[in-house]
Design a protein around this nucleic acid. Structure first.
Lengths: 246, 246
DNA sequence: CATAAAGTTTCACAATGTGGAACAGAACAC
DNA sequence: GTGTTCTGTTCCACATTGTGAAACTTTATG
């Protein structure tokens, strides 16, 4: 459907700017002004876009639709407060992530008070093999499913530590499956480490992962290898039990 | 654009369910199965929708687009941590709201630890005349702008206390303009009170409002009438100064 | 194993979106 | 003030694109 593809190209371009004018979008997307104008007008009519003067902005209607991801599973509702609690207990960044279309996506994210930070990253996609949450989820999938994701996205190198070898990845996933915990040692950002634990549905399929991330100078030794994993395993265990017997 | 309208009807219906099948949407929206199917397939191709089995779900791509509202103004970035701080200081619910298409919309919302609550309401629209934030923003608009909003949405009664009379509303708005603070005494939900202060851009136009809400048994006396307004005015003043001299 | 109900594919048709061009309005320079 | 050059907006003939009934396939149900 070409009309729909054009529509989303416009929406995506609009999202990444802070306010855009018709002709700006038209030249950028190589579409006639009249076409862009018609699409924006329809979006405005539906209240998915806001216009002030000649500038168009993404409307909060998208935020409302986006919050619909919380309807995907009842367990999401109980996970959010648990993520908040983790963040305030550890004063580090805690997050809940899911896999979607072969990416890792942030659904909730909370940072301890001492490093207050924005929610801006919600909905952001990450390369699944370069994150602890992503590996935690991958480890719960069948070899077939894993292979399909690798085929689709490859194993692009992000930092020196990123796992780019397929066999190495499978080895690590086996380890994660055994331990129940996934670590990330600067595989996505230099100096950043993280721990994640997969949340598994009663049917055995992964729902997502809960994780904590922080700088390598704090994330080391027993705290990193024992304390944080234990904390996460406790929380996830609680979530999984509630899913079974609610 | 009929295609786009159909598309968003499908998206909106999908958002309000937890997982929907093609025929379910088709009968609900009175559209042929094949049409719904084609739209969903395009959405899935663009990764705006997720399919597991025969169930379709809203994809996190919408969340990503929705977070684009934060690009609307640089000041949003500094407001979020301030809202968090307000929530943890008061242990009540603090929020940042804007006006859009004549509605009041939640952009950030944080609740103190003792009443941990979800973000689910982000992007939700409220009747502008029945909220303290809405009235705070309205008070900053011209009579013309106010009239246009009232004409569009009316002044529907939500509770016994809702302002449904136009003159009464204008009186209250004048008072808010004088005091710089807006109160809501159970005009939207019985037993719920709130205080809001408008955030005004250097050009005199309102950016939005920051507010705190809570139950009437705690929100009374000096705390409600003096302490909370003072706290909010302090925060908003800081934000407004930063906007001027950044 | 038969029946029903769902998802998917197909295709002829026309309704719908397209985009060039013309028009209107604002900003700017001279 | 006037001409120029940007915008955004409107128009319309055209054909491309989306439509939906029907056929087909797959999955669930009795």
């Amino acid at each position: 459907m070409k009309t729909t593809h054009k529509l989303f190209r416009i929406i995506e371009e609009l999202r990444d700017r802070n306010g855009a004018r018709v002709s700006e979008l038209a030249t950028e997307l190589e579409l006639p002004k009249s076409t862009v104008h018609r699409h924006l007008k329809t979006l405005e009519e539906r209240e998915y876009v806001m216009k002030t003067g000649d500038l168009y902005y993404i409307g909060s209607r998208f935020l409302y639709i986006g919050m619909g991801v919380n309807n995907r599973h009842e367990a999401f509702a109980q996970i959010e407060p648990k993520v908040k609690a983790l963040a305030s207990e550890t004063d580090e960044r805690a997050q809940f992530m899911i896999e979607e279309h072969g990416y890792l996506v942030y659904i909730y994210r909370e940072t301890g008070e001492h490093a207050v930070q924005t929610n801006t990253q919600l909905g952001k996609r990450m390369p699944i093999h370069a994150t602890s949450g992503g590996k935690a989820i991958l480890a719960q999938l069948t070899d077939d499913q894993i292979a399909r994701i690798i085929e689709r996205h490859g194993l692009p190198k992000v930092t020196e530590n990123t796992i780019t070898d397929e066999d190495e990845l499978y080895d690590e996933l086996r380890e994660i499956r055994d331990e129940g915990v996934s670590f990330n040692d600067q595989e996505y950002i230099e100096g950043l480490r993280s721990v994640s634990v997969p949340v598994i549905k009663p049917n055995g399929q992964p729902l997502g992962a809960i994780g904590i991330s922080g700088p390598q100078n704090r994330f080391k030794g027993e705290f990193y290898r024992e304390e944080l994993p234990d904390k996460l395993l406790g929380v996830v265990n609680e979530v999984e039990l509630n899913m079974k017997y609610q």
